[in-house]
Computed example of a mutant assay.
Amino acid sequence: MENRILVLDDDPGILEAIDLSLTYCGFQVRPMLSGDNVFRMIDDFEPNLIILDHLLGGKNGGEICQDLKNDPLKKDIPVIMLSASPEAAVKNPEFGCDSFLAKPFDLNLLVSEIKMFINPYPLVLR
């Protein structure tokens, strides 16, 4: 099974950098520029982890995270919240995110955070 990561960020440059970096690291990445239809995308893509920007052009990533964590079928999907807003870091516990990274962030740190939740190279037992 491939490790699938859904990435939501309304900044095309950040989205592309994350997509390229994670694809290079062996993850299957699905980038989204907006939170529109995010729950349908989660149902279709079945991600192992979600990277979620706090402010998504009118949508609140914190509220999206809360909705995910309140859904019995989606609550166990790890969510890493990204934000340049100091307010988001303070409110992170109420959003229910599993991890938080302040923007700007180091892509190596993001990959390390992801690997705490999923492994891009699953061990195959024979």
Rank of each mutant, 00 (worst) to 15 (best):
E2T: 14
R4S: 13
I5G: 02
I5P: 04
I5M: 07
L6W: 03
L6P: 08
D10S: 09
D10Q: 06
G13I: 14
S21H: 14
L22M: 14
Y24F: 14
Y24T: 14
Q28Y: 03
R30G: 00
G35T: 02
G35N: 01
D36G: 01
N37V: 04
N37H: 13
V38Q: 04
F39T: 00
I42H: 05
D44Y: 05
P47V: 05
N48G: 12
I51Y: 02
L52W: 05
D53M: 02
L56F: 06
G58N: 04
G62K: 03
E63W: 06
I64R: 04
C65L: 15
Q66H: 12
Q66V: 07
D67P: 02
L68A: 09
L68R: 00
D71W: 04
K74G: 07
D76P: 02
I77L: 02
P78R: 12
V79L: 03
I80W: 03
I80P: 02
M81Y: 12
L82A: 13
L82P: 05
A84K: 09
E87C: 10
A88Y: 02
A88K: 05
P93E: 01
P93V: 10
E94C: 02
E94M: 10
C97G: 12
C97I: 06
F100K: 05
L107I: 15
L110W: 01
L110C: 05
L110H: 00
L110V: 01
V111K: 05
E113G: 01
N119W: 03
P122I: 11
V124F: 08
L125I: 11
L125W: 03
R126P: 09
R126C: 09
